[in-house]
Design a protein around this nucleic acid. Structure first.
Lengths: 212, 212
DNA sequence: GTGCGATGTATCGGTCCGATACATCGCGGC
DNA sequence: GCCGCGATGTATCGGACCGATACATCGCAC
C-alpha cells in the first residue's frame, strides 16, 4: 500500500522523504493518521533497489564551498522512473482482496484521478460488497447475540453499523455518478476543457500539477 | 491491544483459541475485521509465559481409551490467573496515547462495563480531543489546499470529515450520559437483579461496574 | 547569542497480518 | 459403506507497518 502511495505521489513531482510524508498525510489524512518514517525510509530504499525510483542527493551548487567541513547532509530527492510508472499503472489496475480493506481502498480512491473508469467502478463495487458484509455481520450480532453483550459493546456495534450504512450510501452515490460518466461531485467547472485530463496515459499531458 | 482484549474475554470464561477468536470478532466486529491467528497464538504463548493465563489441555475423560492410537490433539483451554486479572485492571485503567487511536479506543470501549466511570470519562474525552484534531486537519486541507487536490481526493476528505463530525457528536452524547450517571443508552432495566453473572470474580464485590 | 521549533534522514524492536499447513469431526450425497 | 467438504482447531513464517529514539541543520524570536 505504501509502495502504491509513494509511486503515485512521485508521479506528480520529485520529492524528498519529509515532503513525501507531508503530502501523504494531506492526501490520506481521511483514512490514516500519518505515515511513519519507520515505514517510509525502508520502503524508499526498497523501491530504489528494484529500480522504481532513483535517488539524487541535493547539492545546491554551493556544496563545494564547504565539502568536508560540516559534511552537510543534503536532502535526498526521489524521482520515479519509467519502470516505476509502469509498476504504478499495474498496481492501480489490479484489485486484490487488500484493495477493499479500509486502508487499501482509501489509497486506491485517492488516486482515482489516475485510474480508468472501469477500474474505478470495479473497486467501488468491491468495496461496497465488503462493507455490506461487515454490515450484515453487525446486524447479526445486534440481532441474535444482543443479550450476550453488555450495553457498551452494543452501543459500539450500533455506531459501527451506522457507519457502514452511511458508507454504503456514499458508495452508491459514487457508483451512480461513475456510471453516468460524471466526476465524483462537482469536479470544478473549468478544470480544463471540461474533463479529459483524468488519467495519466497520454504522455503529452504528463503530470499536471500546480507548482506556483 | 490484543493482550488487553484476550485478558478481558478470558475474564468472562475460559476459552480455547478458536473460540477466543470468534468472541473477539463478535465483540470487536465494529472496529476491526477479524483477529489473525498469526497474532493470536503467539500472544497466547507470551501471556502464558509471563503468567497472566494458564493453559490446560482438554482431556474429556475418555482420553485414556485411545491414548496413543490417533494421538488426539485436544483443544487447549486458556484460563486467566489472578495476576492476569491484576494486569487487566492495570491496562484498562491507564490510558496512553495508543488508547485514543481507532483500534485502541475500540478495545477499551468494548470493556467499558469493566471500567470505572472516571476512567470511562477520561477515555471518551481523550478520544474526542483526538477526533477533533483530525477533523481540524481535514478542514484545513479542504480549506487551504483544496485547489491542489483532485476531485476524488477532495471527496475522500469530505467523507472523512463527515465521519469525524459524526463521531464527535456520538462521543458528546456518551460523555453527557456518563456525567449524568446513566449507562450508554438504555442499559437494560433490571441489570442488578436480572443478571449478575457478567464478571468472574467469585470473591465478593471485587471490581463493581454500574453505580446505580 | 542562544534556545527552540520546524525541517530532515535514519534505525530498531515490536505488533499484527495474510498465507499456509495440517489434523479432526460431522453430515449429506452417491 | 465411503467420500468429499465445510466447520472446527492449532500452529508457523515472512513481511508490512508503527512508535520511540537518535542526531543534525536552519531560521527566527527573545
Amino acid at each position: 500500500m505504501l509502495e502504491l502511495a509513494i509511486l503515485g505521489l512521485l508521479q506528480e513531482a520529485p520529492m524528498h522523504g519529509y515532503e513525501l510524508r507531508k503530502e501523504l498525510t494531506a492526501k490520506l489524512g481521511a483514512i490514516r493518521a500519518a505515515i511513519s518514517y519507520g515505514s517510509l525510509y525502508p520502503t524508499l530504499r526498497r523501491l530504489q533497489a528494484v529500480g522504481w525510483i532513483t535517488e539524487a542527493a541535493e547539492t545546491p551548487a554551493t556544496a563545494e564551498e564547504v565539502p568536508a567541513l560540516t559534511s552537510r547532509r543534503g536532502r535526498v530527492v526521489y524521482t520515479i522512473t519509467a519502470e516505476g510508472k509502469e509498476r504504478f499503472a499495474q498496481l492501480i489496475a489490479q484489485a486484490g482482496p487488500e484493495t477493499y480493506d479500509d486502508t487499501g481502498f482509501g489509497v486506491h480512491f485517492a488516486f482515482f484521478a489516475r485510474t480508468d473508469q472501469a477500474t474505478r467502478l470495479r473497486i467501488l463495487e468491491g468495496r461496497r460488497r465488503k462493507i455490506e458484509e461487515r454490515r450484515e455481520g453487525l446486524r447479526d450480532v445486534l440481532g441474535r447475540a444482543a443479550e450476550r453483550l453488555d450495553a457498551y459493546t452494543l452501543e459500539l456495534q450500533r455506531h459501527g453499523l451506522d457507519a457502514c450504512e452511511r458508507e454504503v450510501r456514499w458508495l452508491e452515490e459514487l457508483i451512480a455518478n461513475e456510471r453516468s460518466g460524471r466526476a465524483p461531485t462537482v469536479p470544478e467547472p473549468g478544470t480544463a476543457g471540461g474533463r479529459r485530463d483524468d488519467n495519466s496515459p497520454p504522455p503529452p499531458g504528463e503530470s499536471r500539477k500546480e507548482r506556483p
